[in-house]
Design a protein around this nucleic acid. Structure first.
Lengths: 138, 138
DNA sequence: GCTTGACCCTCCTATGGTGGGAGGGTCTAT
DNA sequence: ATAGACCCTCCCACCATAGGAGGGTCAAGC
């Protein structure tokens, strides 16, 4: 199985397979006589695993850990869960931050007439957050 | 006012001020005899504006547009609102995506015992999403 | 056996926003 | 005059991904 077929079967792009190979996230693929990378079902499964983990937002460091636990039949599920929960906490933090942004923006946009007039609470907020500080520090 | 003072007054790091200068987000700062960048209250206000916009998640392209509207006293607030709403929609999309990730992960983590045993629904999900596809495509 | 086209290879570039550092110049206070 | 704080430019790294150039390999059809 060539890299193109592995890409189709796993849903990971050819580019990314080569990248994962280069950085050592997957073990170096064996090579054909013509120096083509060769893949079997096992390796395609690992690529799938990586793709699925990426869609859940795990970064490559976390995926490397998850992969090695996946390969280890005697892993304690505690370790997997710990990684997942750390990542989950991370996600929740980022979601909260983005929600704070969105809430502020929604409020400002709601207060903005959005017509021909120049008065705009959005720009006022951006420009005038704490204007007095400038005067006092100059 | 030197760049360090402008950084303190605006809350934007020295590094980032130079970067905004280099990429043209702000107009090139005037220079002293010794080639030091010089800032006045007006420019510090623009840096503040940028910082505030960054905390609301606007990217540099959007900020460039917002800045030019801010500088234009005759802008129609419609244009500002349009940019804000586009960005808001973007934020909401990303929030929804991350929430989907978090929800899935929360469910999987909840189902995982997290003890010494190797059985782990998290790894099962990552590895076994659609395993039959591999067999049928090999 | 030769050509064609699909596929593969490596190496380089860019993205976006930020930080870090090297190597060297400027300014200010003692 | 010297020390120390500050500034300058230029380069590198991050993370995950995509694009392209320049060239090799393979399979099918002639």
């Amino acid at each position: 199985m060539n890299i193109g077929q592995a890409a189709k079967a796993s849903g990971v792009s050819v580019k990314m397979i080569r990248y994962y190979d280069a950085v050592g996230l997957v073990r170096p693929a064996s090579r054909s006589e013509g120096n083509y990378r060769e893949y079997d079902a096992r390796e395609v499964n690992e690529l799938r695993f990586i793709r699925r983990a990426r869609t859940l937002g795990f970064d490559m460091t976390e995926i490397a850990q998850l992969l090695s636990l996946w390969r280890d039949r005697d892993r304690p599920s505690r370790e997997v869960k710990a990684i997942a929960q750390r990542h989950l906490a991370d996600l929740d933090t980022r979601i909260r931050e983005m929600q704070a942004m969105a809430d502020t923006l929604r409020h400002l946009a709601h207060c903005c007439a959005g017509d021909d007039r120049p008065d705009c609470p959005i720009l006022e907020d951006l420009g005038g957050a704490t204007p007095e500080a400038v005067h006092t520090t100059l």
